[in-house]
Design a protein around this nucleic acid. Structure first.
Length: 514
RNA sequence: GCUCCGAUAGUGUAGCUCGGCCAAUCAUGCGGGGCUCUCAAUCCCGCGACUCGGGUUCAAAUCCCGGUCGGAGCACCA
C-alpha cells in the first residue's frame, strides 16, 4: 500500500512508474483560451438569431448576430435570422427595422442563410395548437388575468383546465372565428399546476390581438397570435435548430418549452446563455424609451451617436471587424457584466489607425494674427507611416484651439506644428510673431522642438462639426477634409472620426474614439 | 413571496466538467520609460483578482454546505 503522504514530485515519480501514459494527459490540460467555447455538434449545426423587429439592432442584438453566425461559420452550418414578429400591438414591429436588421447583418459580414418571418406561419402554429388540444395538453381559458393568477399562485387548476377535448376544440375554433374578443380567451399549455416554480404553471400560448399587423401582406388576416414561448418552440423545431444561444433572460423559456417538446416527442436543441449586459456609456436602455426620445426630438434618429444601436456605431466608424472581435472575446459566460466600450475602441483603433489620414481640426477656434508671417505652405504627412504630404498654405491669420492658449501670457512661445515657432505678443486680441524655426530649417538640423507643439488651421478653412456621444464640437478644419467623405480619419490631437457629410463647405463628422 | 442563474485584478476574460505543474491566462485600463514635430500608433518595464464562512482532502479558484451580493422569471411583451 502506498502511503497517503508525499510531495507532488514523488507522486508524479510513482505515477511515471505505474502509468507513464497518464503523465502526458495531466500535463496538457488547462490551456488558456479566449473567445467562444467549442460546441458539441452531431452532424449539421443550425443556429438562429430571433429578434422582434420593433426597432433596429442594438448592441445587445449584435451579440446575438455575431455569436450565432460565428458558430455557424465555424461548423460550416447554417445561420438563420427569424423575425419573431408575433405581437402586433404591445411591441409592434417596425417595418423599416426588418430591412435594417438584414442590412446590419450584411455590415457585420454575415448574410443569413435563411430569413424567416414568424408572422408568415400562423397557420402552422394553429395546426400544432390543435394537435395539442386533441392530446389534451392545451386548453382554452377564459379566466381574467387576475383570476388566473390567483389560481396559479394557489397551485390550483382554473375551471377550464379540465374541459373536454371536444369543447376545447370548439372554443379554440371560436377564438379563431371571432367568437371571443380581445382579452376574453387564451390558449394555455398544460404543464404542472403544482410546479414549484410559479413561472412554469400552465403558461399562455395564444391570445387574441385585434390590431392589424404592420406588414401589409399580413394586415388584419389574423386575430389569434402565438406568444413567444410557443412560437419559438415550434419554429425552432421545424427549422431544425440545433443550438440556441441567447441571453440569460430566456433561460426559463427553455423549461416552459420543454413541455411542448415532450408532448410532441421532439428533442430540445442544446442551449447556452450569456448574462445580462450593461454598458457604462449607455446605461440602461430600452427600445421603446429610445423610440420616444427620438419622437420628441431628444435624439436625431436611430443612428444618433448617443444611442446604443449598431447603426450609430456604424455611423461613427466602428468597423464590423472590431465589433465582431469584441463580441467574440466576450465569450458566453453567464455572469452579468457591466462593461465599458474602451475595449471595443482599442480594437477599432488598431484596425483603423493604419489607414486613417491625419488632418488638423481646431475646436473652439481662436483667431491668431501672426506678425512677420512668412508666406509658406506647410506640408504635414497624411500619415506618419507614409511619405505623401498635405499642402496647407499659411498666411498671417491662423486659428488655434482655445484650450491650447488658455493661461498663456505675452512672451510665451509655441511651436505651430509643421510651420514655425511663435511668441505671443498679446492675448486680447491674440497676436503672435514668427520667431523662426520654419519646417525647412528644422529639416536641415533635425533639432527637437523646444516649445509646446500645437496644431492650427489657416484662414482658408472648412467649418466642421463633430458629433460625439457626450457632446458636440464646433470648429474649423483644413480644406482637405472635404475629400474624405465616408472615411475614418484622425483629427490630430483630437481623435478618430468618420466624415459623415460634406455640404457646401460645411463638414459633419461623427466621433469614433480617441 | 415562490423559482432559477451567477460571483476570478478598475473593466472584460481563461482556468472549474475530471482537485495537484495556478505564486492564476489574455485583453483593456492605469503608472513609468524609449521613439515621434499629434494627446494616435509602436516598443520596453511595472500595477492589480480567486465574494465570505465552514467542510472534504496529503492537496481546493476547482468538490460539498451555509451566508452575502448581483441578475432574471412568475405577462393575454419579445
Amino acid at each position: 500500500m502506498y502511503g497517503l503522504t508525499g510531495d507532488p514530485e514523488s507522486w508524479e515519480q510513482r505515477l511515471r512508474e505505474l502509468a507513464p501514459d497518464l503523465i502526458e494527459e495531466i500535463h496538457e490540460r488547462k490551456q488558456p483560451s479566449t473567445g467562444l467555447p467549442d460546441l458539441e455538434v452531431n452532424g449539421k449545426a443550425v443556429l438562429r438569431f430571433a429578434p422582434n423587429p420593433n426597432g433596429p439592432a442594438t448592441i445587445g442584438s449584435v451579440r446575438g448576430i455575431v455569436v450565432n453566425s460565428e458558430y455557424a461559420r465555424r461548423y460550416h452550418g447554417e445561420f438563420i435570422i427569424r423575425f419573431d414578429d408575433t405581437d402586433p400591438k404591445t411591441k409592434a414591429p417596425m417595418l423599416d427595422a426588418y430591412t435594417w436588421y438584414l442590412d446590419d447583418c450584411e455590415y457585420l459580414g454575415t448574410v443569413p442563410d435563411r430569413v424567416v418571418y414568424a408572422s408568415d406561419h400562423l397557420l402552422e402554429y394553429y395546426e400544432y395548437a390543435k394537435k395539442l388540444i386533441l392530446m389534451g395538453k392545451a386548453y382554452v381559458c377564459t379566466c381574467s388575468r387576475d383570476e388566473f393568477k390567483r389560481y396559479k399562485d394557489a397551485c390550483e387548476p382554473c375551471p377550464h383546465r379540465d374541459t373536454d377535448v371536444d369543447v376545447n376544440l370548439k372554443h379554440w375554433e371560436q377564438m379563431l372565428d371571432g367568437g371571443y374578443s380581445e382579452g376574453d380567451a387564451v390558449l394555455r399549455i398544460k404543464t404542472d399546476i403544482k410546479h414549484k416554480d410559479p413561472a412554469m404553471r400552465d403558461w399562455a400560448a395564444f391570445r387574441i390581438v385585434l390590431a392589424p399587423h404592420p406588414r401589409p401582406e399580413i394586415g388584419d388576416r389574423f386575430r389569434v397570435w402565438p406568444l413567444l414561448d410557443f412560437e419559438s418552440a415550434i419554429k425552432d423545431h421545424i427549422l431544425g435548430i440545433t443550438h440556441i444561444i441567447r441571453g440569460k433572460d430566456l433561460m426559463d423559456s427553455e423549461q416552459r418549452q420543454r413541455y411542448v417538446y415532450d408532448y410532441l416527442g421532439w428533442q430540445y436543441p442544446k442551449t447556452m446563455h450569456w448574462g445580462r449586459m450593461k454598458i457604462h456609456e449607455f446605461g440602461r436602455f430600452s427600445t421603446s424609451a429610445i423610440s420616444e426620445a427620438i419622437s420628441d426630438g431628444t435624439y436625431t434618429g436611430w443612428d444618433d451617436p448617443r444611442v446604443p444601436t449598431l447603426r450609430a456605431l456604424r455611423r461613427r466608424g466602428i468597423t464590423a471587424a472590431a465589433i465582431r472581435k469584441f463580441m467574440i472575446d466576450l465569450g458566453i459566460a453567464e455572469t452579468d457584466i457591466s462593461l465599458s466600450l474602451d475595449n471595443l475602441y482599442a480594437i477599432n483603433r488598431k484596425i483603423v489607425d493604419p489607414a486613417a489620414n491625419r488632418y488638423f481640426f481646431v475646436w473652439e477656434p481662436v483667431r491668431m494674427e501672426i506678425l512677420g508671417a512668412p508666406d509658406v505652405i506647410a506640408t504635414p504627412k497624411y500619415h506618419p507611416g507614409r511619405d505623401d504630404l498635405r499642402k496647407i498654405p499659411a498666411g498671417p491669420t491662423l486659428y488655434v484651439c482655445r484650450t491650447d492658449i488658455e493661461g498663456l501670457e505675452a512672451g510665451d512661445k509655441l511651436r505651430l506644428k509643421n510651420l514655425y515657432d511663435v511668441e505671443i505678443t498679446s492675448t486680447e486680441p491674440l497676436v503672435a510673431r514668427c520667431i523662426g524655426g520654419t519646417h525647412e530649417a528644422w529639416c536641415a538640423t533635425c533639432e527637437k522642438p523646444r516649445y509646446q507643439i500645437i496644431h492650427w488651421v489657416p484662414d482658408e478653412y472648412v467649418s466642421v462639426v463633430v458629433r460625439a456621444p457626450d457632446r458636440m464640437y464646433e470648429g474649423v478644419g483644413e480644406t482637405g477634409i472635404v475629400d474624405e467623405q465616408g472615411n475614418v480619419v484622425q483629427f490630430e490631437r483630437f481623435g478618430f472620426v468618420r466624415i459623415d457629410s460634406v455640404d457646401t463647405g460645411r463638414v459633419v463628422a461623427y466621433f469614433a474614439h480617441r
